[in-house]
Structures are given as C-alpha cells and as structure tokens.
Simulated assay, not measured.
Amino acid sequence: MRIKQPEIIYEDEAVIVCRKEAGVAVQTARAGQADMVSLLKNYRAKKKEEPYIGLIHRLDQPVEGVMVFAKTKMAAAKLSAQVSNRSMEKEYLAVTAGVPQPEKGELCDWLLRDGKTNTSTVVAKGTPQAKEAKLSYEVVEVRAEGQKALVHIWLHTGRHHQIRVQFAHVGYPLYGDVKYGTAAGAYCPVALCSCRIAFKHPITGKEMEFAIEPKGKAFHI
C-alpha cells in the first residue's frame, strides 16, 4: 500500500495526536517499510525540529485509530506513566460477526502471548506469564438481520491483540480478522478503530480528549 503522511489532529510543543491508517505499522524493524514513528520523525525533521518521537502506546497494523506520540523524553515519561496506571482512556468501535450476548457487559480473561507466532490465546488463570485482560462493551447497533453488530468498547488493560482475542474467544470475532476469526467475513482490514483517547497533557496537566470516526469499509456497509 502507498504510505502517506499521517493526518495530524493536534500538535504542540509536547505531543502529536494523529490518525493511524489501517495497514500502517506503528513501529517496525523491516527495512524499507514505513511506520508511524519513522513518518513522524521525518515530519519533524522537515520542520527543522529535533526528530524525536516517543512511542506511548500501540495499535495493531491492520487497525485504524487515533494515537498520541510524545515530542520530548519528559512528555514520553509522563504519558507512559498514565498508560501504566490506566488513567489514559481508550475507546474503540468494532464490527463483530454475530451480536454479542449479553449486548452490554464485561470480558475478563487471562491472555498468553506467543512471540513466535505473534498471537495471543485465552488461558487459565495462573498460567505462567499470562496477563489479565479486561474490557467493557456495549452493542450500539445490530446490522444485517442479526448477522453482525457495531460494538463500543472501553479498554481497561492494553494486552497484545486483546480485543480481537477476547471477542473471538466468546464466539464473536471481528470482521476481517483472519488471524483470530476465519468465519468473520472477507473484509480487510480488521473492523476495529481506536475512536477516542483521553489523557492529561504532560506539561499543563489539562484534560485532553480526541475522537475520530472510522473509515474502514466494514463500518459503512
């Protein structure tokens, strides 16, 4: 895919808030493949600024959404602390195969990541190296005569592939997610969007909030 400059939603001396398009990696070691960090470093360099970009949180490559990056090491440390203490708010919209039951609830699981396959699996509590995963959700709209649903998700922990794994585990995989839900439909990319992020500004302490609408095909048919 052709990689273009990320859409900047907000920028000041400490942070850059932008939209990550689906298909773009947040950060990659692959030579010649553009990612969000390198694109933003180049963006700063072209403005004759120090090309520092602090990575605060991640989004899977096939997922779109709003992200915040730090422009200084101090800002990075303060924003990362908000991620660690779970005061940074993250909300998502997803399209699921089928309608989750109940239509409003919470998913609590233990996930184990496999670095060799780049996947995560729901495992029993107490499994070595497994991490607790929690999210809340609510069905916003039932579509296609009950064949799919638009779901609003509040993420309480930030585990590897968390939303995708947890919904697939309960039988409602996300559309387009061939990694975790082969029956989820032939859409690409994954029907998941980080639609809202809220945090305290690392310098001023002001409450900051940014929201976007998903562009993905599965959200609009």
Rank of each mutant, 00 (worst) to 15 (best):
Y187H: 15
A149L: 04
F167P: 14
P128K: 11
I163Q: 08
V151W: 03
C188L: 10
V139K: 03
A186W: 06
V139F: 05
K148E: 13
Y187D: 15
S136N: 13
E132A: 10
K131A: 12
V178S: 03
K148W: 09
E141K: 07
R164S: 12
R159P: 01
T182G: 00
A191Q: 07
V190H: 01
V151A: 14
L192P: 15
C195E: 11
K179F: 02
E145W: 06
G176N: 11
A191W: 03
C193M: 03
G181P: 06
H169D: 14
P173M: 06
A191R: 03
L150E: 14
E132C: 07
K148R: 14
Q147H: 03
Y175A: 13
L192Q: 12
R159T: 15
E145N: 14
R164G: 14
A191E: 09
V142W: 02
A144Q: 15
I153E: 07
K125D: 07
P189K: 01
H152A: 15
F167H: 08
P189D: 05
L135S: 04
K125E: 12
A130E: 13
V170A: 07
P173S: 12
T182L: 00
G126A: 08
D177L: 01
C188S: 14
A184R: 05
L155P: 00
V151K: 07
A133W: 02
K179I: 04
A191T: 11
I163F: 08
A144H: 15
G176S: 12
Q129G: 00
L150F: 12
Y180S: 08
Q166L: 02
A191Y: 09
E132D: 00
V151L: 08
P189C: 05
L192E: 12
T157Y: 13
R143D: 01
E132G: 06
Q166T: 02
V140L: 15
I163S: 09
V140H: 11
A133R: 03
A133L: 02
L135G: 01
V151T: 14
R159V: 12
W154R: 11
Y180E: 10
Y175W: 11
K148Y: 13
R159Y: 10
P128I: 08
I163H: 07
K179P: 03
L174H: 01
R164D: 12
V140R: 15
T127K: 01
H160W: 05
H156A: 00
